[in-house]
Design a protein around this nucleic acid. Structure first.
Length: 417
RNA sequence: GUGGGUAUAGUUCAGCUGGUUAGAGCGUCAGAUUGUGGUCCUGAAUGUCGUGGGUUCGAAUCCCACUACCCACCCCA
């Protein structure tokens, strides 16, 4: 049983669906290219400590969701739960800080988190991401949001909202935490048990607790935005101004806290339906945390599976541009040999051609061609081979054109434009 | 990790309060007078009824465990 069952929370990508992924991947690369981002690739696993330090060892991700094991050399290794930590590590290891700033990168990776499977939530999931280093002004913040939106819109996603917030720098957060605790303290006993525990350790989380009691207790609580320092405030105002400049609609959602420790100042989410399709923010202290010189950074992660689910729910058709140009049908043994060679020659020239491998009848081959989806079919029997002339059928219109066999390449190429 | 639901052909599902050879649509394959697909018509194949155990003369149907999926919490992409 186990051998015919993929591990929980993993999914196969089947041949009939792969074009969808290719479409999104190509689209993302193209958009990143237009925005001046270059691809970075890095290992699937890292030293466990990288994520403990980067993501934060009090976060859920690190505490209970990591795939961690000891390798044969006794090193503690973890399958990456996210991309940012690795990119920062690579930035330092490869001296990318010596390159012209800002350094703008993108990636397309699988990530791993051990948690309960649900729709749009897998143990191995895939994300597109972007990370920028060295630019501290708010225009980069707006740039990556606009990049994500451009990509999503190009994919056909039009139902979504952009929610933004600022969680300030560590200094403002400390001040705010104290204010929040002062506000909640009188009602401390009324909070739900988890929030009771959170009170000292991570009071910010109480704000978006779903329990009704806590929602009630949080009403009228001080807002983080009112406690951020002048520098953080200026940055946030600048961020909003840049979004306005681009005509991007957004909502300020003071509830966005994000579960990864490294975020500072800007945080944002792009929501569609019930999913956070894209989430990210600024992490100005992370490179320093890893031992580098203070370098601002910002990025986002975008869930591919979630995006695909949303596109499907909304009835958005992903175009399939991987269809065959030509399906060649052979009648009889002679023709099979002839078309096998013909297909090979056309394939050498870059035409997408397929042929029958089952020795089926004409009708079956036509049906097969139709199901595969192809632009043209050509039927070869002894007649065609002898005369060197064949009928090419346009599968969309049903019309046929008589052409010389050695003109097939020109015919299809000419039509490709 | 916690709570609830579901599990029947490739797929979506039907199968009444346990009773003989478990059904349908879609899909697949093959035909429709030996050279042209998509519509229509005809026919065929396919299930240890999620896995293991129990109750019973008898279980797809009732009970338990396990596994997977779905939903909520938690968290996040």
């Amino acid at each position: 049983m186990l051998i015919t069952q993929a591990p929980k929370g993993t999914e196969d990508l089947l041949p009939k669906d792969s074009y969808k992924w290719h479409y999104l991947e190509n689209n993302f690369k193209k958009v990143c290219d237009c925005f001046g981002y270059k691809e970075i690739r890095f290992p699937t696993f890292e030293h466990t400590e990288l994520f403990e330090r980067g993501v934060g060892d009090t976060t859920d991700v690190v505490q209970k969701q990591m795939y961690t094991f000891n390798d044969k050399g006794g090193r503690s290794i973890t399958l990456r739960p996210e991309g940012t930590s690795s990119v920062c590590r690579s930035f330092l290891q490869n001296n990318l800080y010596a390159e012209p700033m800002p350094v703008k990168t993108y990636y397309d990776i699988p990530c791993f988190r051990y948690e309960n499977k649900q729709k749009g939530r897998l143990r191995e999931f895939h994300q597109f991401g972007v990370e920028v280093f060295g630019a501290k002004g708010p225009s980069v913040d707006a740039e990556i949001v606009s990049l994500a939106l451009t990509f999503l819109r190009n994919c056909g996603l039009d139902v979504m909202s952009v929610n933004i917030n600022s969680i300030g720098c560590p200094a403002c957060r400390e001040r705010y935490k104290e204010a929040l605790k002062d506000f909640l303290r009188p009602n401390l006993d009324k909070l739900c048990s988890t929030c009771h525990e959170r009170f000292e350790r991570n009071p910010l989380r109480i704000i978006d607790c779903k329990s009704e009691i806590c929602q009630e207790a949080v009403k009228g609580a001080p807002k983080l935005l009112d406690y951020i320092c002048d520098d953080c405030r200026d940055h946030f105002e600048g961020f909003k101004a840049q979004l306005d400049l681009l005509g991007i609609d957004y909502k300020i959602d003071s509830g966005i806290v994000r579960g990864l420790d490294y975020y500072t100042k800007t945080v944002f989410e792009i929501i569609s339906g019930s999913f956070t399709v894209c989430g990210g923010g600024r992490y100005d202290g992370l490179i320093e945390e890893f031992g580098g010189d203070s370098t601002p950074g910002i990025g986002f992660g975008l869930g591919i599976e979630r995006l695909l689910i949303r596109l499907e729910d909304l009835g958005v058709e992903i175009p399939n541009d991987e269809l065959l140009d030509l399906y060649v049908i052979a009648l009889g043994e002679n023709a099979e040999k002839f078309t096998f060679k013909l297909a090979y020659d056309l394939r050498q020239q870059g035409i997408k051609v397929d042929i029958d491998h089952m020795s089926r009848g004409l009708k079956s081959q036509m049906k097969y061609a139709n199901k595969l989806g192809c632009r043209y079919t050509a039927v070869f029997g002894d007649n065609e081979i002898e005369k060197g002339i064949v009928n090419i059928k346009n599968m969309e219109t049903g019309s046929q054109t008589e052409i010389e066999t050695d003109k097939i390449y020109e015919f299809i190429k000419g039509d490709n434009k």
